[in-house]
Design a protein around this nucleic acid. Structure first.
Length: 487
RNA sequence: GGUCCCAUAGACUAACGGUUAGGUCACAAGCCUUUCACGCUUGCAGUAGGGGUUCGAAUCCCCUUGGGAUCACCA
């Protein structure tokens, strides 16, 4: 069997991280099986349509490296890939169900439906009362057609049979059984002529020859409705796999409020694509359990739906951060340097590529995101930074001043401002004085960076260069020292 | 509330019915070190509860409990 899967988001804004994982699993499954992946846009709700949403969706997928074989932007033999461009098809099939008495016309207004649910007493059981409402069953087919000819709004509902068991196999969850008595007469075609999800989804999956429907668990309860539709059409249903949900810390379905859920937010924050994809892939599935870092190639090689977990997975940003940090240490510094350079420009700092690479190598072990460098080491970009007053009080006294000033004179007379040479001459000097290197390094760090901690001091000085360092020493004694003393 | 799904530490997860229940994040301690990190080592911590089936159960079955999803002219 040819494997054909689809990712079918609705264009209501941005790509949700849960959506990204669904897309990823579809992609991995397709690639693993030499199949095709289709991107289909489910835009049948005109009221929720958001401008540019499709473009955003596509951008986010591209960023993540998820490539599809057919889609609205690349075409294919089974298109169009936007449901709003396929309305005639849904109408045709709805008519077919009407003709075979598997569906019927209904004319209830939304007020009447609300009233029905109220009258029902139990607000939690809003099942459509077929024999009491305003539809083909109560007024007859002839009367229904008359109303329609007179321009009265109508919908088409699925006639759900009674006392039947709908049974299907889910690849991840096994057999699932539901009684048709618990299924409502679904609306298939809305009064605006657009199909509902259920109809459009089934018609499209069938006509696009989808072999496996891999989607979120939230669709599990409506799958029996879809099976019913496939049966009504005499179509063979595809195989289903319902993925576990991505969860908030409180275990509820991952939604806004408790942090970012839009993929573009994570892009904007500067998470690396490979790290993000790696992290997302391991939420709900793991090939071995004793390894965390995988390339996309390896994911494709190992992926199988049978090993996907059933239980939901909490989206833990802390581990995402760790993952990103791992990738920062792993990835070619030149790539990161490029990112840093762009970020620097946005902050009005002009740095050379060479300088950028040096910064990455110096700080890559102490950042989670590339942009953290600006927080961790503002002193690498500007001479205008804050000094740690508390650290000053702790590290500076009369003796420090005399030791430091002599050392600075030595630095001034050195032409070779490399970290190894700085280390050597400093060491030689302090040892002659009967001191330890730590006695001078902390005061120097304060003068150069304003901070109490940071990367290797001599490497920092080397990268900054002699001129900048000597200027900072001077500035410190001329201005900052007195200021800190008086504060 | 009905229906459906789910249940290994705080989080992500591994374990042909036979392991001392393994790995990762987080947390803690130690080592390394010019500081902070990184790294390394160690530690803390788990099969929700109760019944079965079996020589043997995290694993299979049942019940309870807990969590979640869903029930729209939204997808």
């Amino acid at each position: 069997m040819d494997v054909r899967v689809r990712f079918a988001p609705s264009p209501t804004g941005y790509l949700h991280v849960g959506g990204l994982r669904t897309a990823l699993y579809n992609y991995l499954f397709a690639k693993h099986n030499n199949g095709k992946m289709i991107l289909r846009i489910e835009d049948t709700d005109r009221s929720r349509y958001v401008e540019n949403a499709i473009e955003n969706l596509i951008d986010s997928l591209k960023w993540a490296g998820i490539e599809y074989d057919e889609g609205p932007d690349i075409g294919g033999d089974y298109g169009p890939y936007k449901q709003s461009d396929r309305l005639e098809l849904y109408k045709k099939y709805a008519q077919e169900l009407l003709d075979s008495s598997k569906a019927y016309y209904a004319f209830d207004t939304s007020e009447e439906l609300t009233e029905m649910r109220k009258k029902n007493g139990d607000i939690f059981d809003p099942k459509y009362k077929r024999l009491e409402m305003n539809n083909q069953f109560t007024i007859g087919l002839e009367e229904s057609k008359k109303l329609i000819n007179n321009g009265v709004d109508y919908v088409i509902r699925l006639l759900v049979p009674e006392n039947e068991e709908i049974i299907f196999q889910d690849i991840i969850r096994g057999e699932i059984k539901v009684s048709t008595n618990d299924i409502d007469d679904q609306i298939l075609l809305k009064s605006d002529g657009y199909p509902t999800y259920h109809l459009a989804n089934v018609v499209d999956d069938y006509s696009m020859k989808i072999s496996h429907v891999i989607r979120g668990e939230e669709w599990l309860p409506s799958t029996p409705k879809h099976i019913l539709l496939y049966n009504s059409f005499n179509w063979e249903p595809p195989k289903f796999a319902h993925l576990p949900l991505l969860l908030n810390k409180d275990k509820s379905k991952l939604r806004k409020r408790q942090g970012s859920v839009a993929v573009e937010d994570y892009i904007q924050k500067g998470y690396l694509k490979d790290a993000f994809v790696n992290f997302i892939a391991l939420l709900g599935w793991n090939p071995t359990g004793d390894r965390e870092i995988y390339s996309i190639k390896e994911f494709i090689e190992y992926f199988n739906l049978e090993k996907v977990n059933k239980a939901g997975a909490v989206f833990d940003v802390q581990k995402l951060d760790w993952m990103n940090q791992q990738y920062i240490k792993l990835i070619n510094p030149e790539i990161l340097a490029e990112i840093l350079q762009i970020s620097a420009k946005k902050r009005n700092f002009e740095i050379t590529n060479e300088y950028s690479i040096k910064l990455i190598n110096l700080f890559k072990e102490r950042i989670v995101l590339v942009d953290d460098i600006f927080e961790v080491a503002p002193y690498m970009f500007t001479d205008n930074f804050d000094y740690d007053k508390e650290y000053f009080n702790k590290k500076w006294n009369e003796k420090t001043i005399s030791i430091i000033s002599k050392l600075l004179a030595i630095y001034e007379n050195t032409d070779e401002f490399s970290h190894s040479n700085l280390h050597n001459i400093t060491k030689e000097y302090v040892e002659n004085m009967g001191k330890k290197i730590t006695d001078v390094i902390h005061p120097i760090r304060l003068m150069i960076t304003g901070q109490s901690s940071g990367a290797s001091m001599f490497e920092t000085m080397e990268i900054l260069g002699k001129d900048r360092c000597m200027k900072r020493f001077k500035y410190f004694f001329d201005e900052i020292f007195i200021k800190l003393c008086n504060e």
